[in-house]
Amino acid sequence: MEIIRTEKLEKVYQDNSVPVHALKGIDLSISAGEFTVIAGPSGSGKTTLLNLIGALDKPTAGKVYLEGEDLSAKSKGQLANIRLNKIGFIFQAYNLIPVLTALENIEFTMMLRGIPEKERRRRALALMEELGIAELANKRPTEMSGGQQQRVAVARAIVNDPTIVLADEPTANLDSVTGSRLLDLMERMNREHNITFVFSSHDPKVIERGRRLLWLRDGLIEKEDVRDAAPSEG
């Protein structure tokens, strides 16, 4: 089932009054259950593409469809709502709200969606158990390591059963062991719960995990690789 489709997607932005063509016409399609990496060197437009798919930004030209709906026709408020209900984000750093505990961070988006307290607590704790981070429940971000923070970020991203989870260089600030473990976690979620993951990264260790690779260079898709083999342990 197709969940994301882009048609001739373009994005131009101003960098000190110099226009930059970040994306020059992207056509792609992403289906449910994918574990896809948008790969490419710095400046290739990976993050920009991810932001457009994630309803964080509007294209300069072209269209983005999420589950068939045209995102460019939506207002800011509607986009926010879509992000809340359908999209999970994992950023490179500063994912968590510093004044909330890990548990509360995970509960946060459920709170915004109006889910009552008892229910959200139950879901959050269950998820933390499953991800093996239950002991972090009452810790604040400053009391956790980088790896731990990212795991909590994963939990937060998937707790709402999003249509798609977008991760922008999630392992960039982590050492290779921790990074690998994080990827293991996300693979497991993808396998066991059929959660769709799309990464953007230039890190070979991340790229080799992807089952589908979209190579971006200078704002265009250069090539695409699809791997049938099951992912290997890193």
Partner: peptide, 16 residues
């Protein structure tokens, strides 16, 4: 602002 940016990205309504 960075924190606010993240929270808005997660889908928090602006007015909230």
């Amino acid at each position: 602002f960075r924190e606010f940016g993240v929270v808005l990205a997660l889908g928090m309504p602006q007015m909230r």
